[in-house]
């Protein structure tokens, strides 16, 4: 197996280990914790008032536009990392290129700002 794949095998093993840790703790707890379910205990806690409606209530997601902007900027971050890594060898050319890229993105942010979508509604 190549070094590269082996490194990610380690990561996978660690993910498995996290699951194992959870299983161990829950298993140890299962030996000593009580289980006496009652109807009262399983009512959702909403400050002591009996819950109204089905629980999976509808709620207004107020940051729809923010989420869209987030996707844009997160993709930008993915582009910026390889550039940042190799900037020394790109030199001035890379700097100017990325300067233009970032300025265009920043213009997008300014546009959103002027449009008033960065206001919490």
């Amino acid at each position: 197996m190549s070094e590269f794949l082996r490194a990610y095998l380690t990561v996978a093993v660690f993910a498995g280990a996290a699951g194992l840790l959870v299983a161990l703790m829950l298993g140890a707890g299962w030996l000593i914790r009580p289980s006496r379910p009652t109807a009262q205990k399983s009512i959702a806690y909403e400050s002591g008032v009996d819950p109204v409606g089905p629980g999976f209530g509808q709620s207004q997601v107020r940051y729809y536009i923010f989420a869209l902007l987030f996707v844009l900027f997160d993709v930008e971050a993915v582009f910026i990392f390889p550039w940042a890594l190799r900037l020394e060898s790109y030199g001035l050319f890379g700097l100017v290129e990325m300067g233009i890229f970032i300025v265009i993105l920043a213009l997008g942010l300014v546009y959103a700002w002027r449009k008033g979508v960065l206001r919490w509604v």
């Binding site: 914790r33 006496r36 205990k41 959702a44």
Partner: peptide
């Protein structure tokens, strides 16, 4: 924490 009963709401 280990001794506490694990509860889940009925509709969860």
């Amino acid at each position: 924490f280990v001794q506490k009963e694990l509860l889940a709401p009925e509709r969860a």
